[in-house]
Design a protein around this nucleic acid. Structure first.
Length: 210
DNA sequence: CAATAGATCATCT
DNA sequence: GATGATCTATTGC
């Protein structure tokens, strides 16, 4: 059996959960400040968690790359709702992507979680992602990390300030260099630098920011 | 290492 | 009926 998790379950539970005020701000601030904190899913078979190292901000009506730019529809309802909730959608009929809703109730905005540094439940993640040969591939990509953590559309609309899916504050002070670069895989607003990643982290997804 | 094709379906036109 | 906020395997340089 390989090495133990960097963050054991007991330590995970002692970390404070980010409260709704954290998310009740402009989307870009929320996106940048999410870096370094820990996405935690308490599954039926135990905790799985990873430190957030890469995100993208998706704005409101003026951001044509954002689902919310089409206005209020059944799908985008959660994006226009209160902050601190999960927005999970199916992409290309195959993968699921996790976003965290920002901005006050009534204003759209969300942060796509793009990559994690795995810290808890690594063996369980590997079982669900056999294609990942390297640790860096386990949660390096929005579709990959949802599989690794067991997150799916059944989490859409969930409150992430309590319950099975939360974000926990990294306990130590952390000075990190944040890199801003264009978002991945979009055609509209393709030059807006709304992808934020931890400089020099080996867990950031491809293509690497410039 | 870079480019690309195929998988597959909810959502909106 | 077209279109993706992607991943993987495969091909080609």
């Amino acid at each position: 059996m390989p090495g133990a998790d960097p963050v054991p379950a007991s330590r995970l539970k002692s970390m404070r959960i980010l409260a709704r005020d954290f998310y009740n701000r402009d989307t870009i601030t929320v996106a940048r400040e999410l870096l370094g904190h820990v996405l935690h899913h308490e599954t039926a078979t135990g905790p799985r968690a990873g430190r957030i190292v890469e995100v993208e901000a998706y704005l409101g009506l003026n951001d044509l790359a954002a689902h919310a730019s089409r206005g209020l529809t059944p799908r985008t309802k959660v994006l226009f709702g209160p902050p601190g909730h999960a927005y999970v959608y199916l992409i290309y009929g195959v993968y699921e992507c996790l976003n965290l809703v920002a901005e006050p109730d009534g204003t759209a905005g969300c942060v796509l979680i793009r990559a994690l540094e795995p810290v808890t439940g690594i063996e369980a993640m590997r079982q669900d992602r056999p294609a990942a040969r390297q640790l860096r591939e386990l949660c390096g990509g929005p579709g990959r990390l949802t599989i690794a953590l067991g997150i799916s559309r059944r989490h859409n609309g969930l409150d992430v300030t309590r319950g099975e899916l939360t974000v926990r504050q990294w306990p130590e002070p952390w000075n990190t260099e944040v890199v801003a670069s264009p978002r991945v895989g979009i055609t509209q607003c393709a030059d807006w630098p709304l992808r934020f990643s931890v400089a020099h982290s080996p867990f950031v997804s491809l293509p690497l920011p410039k």
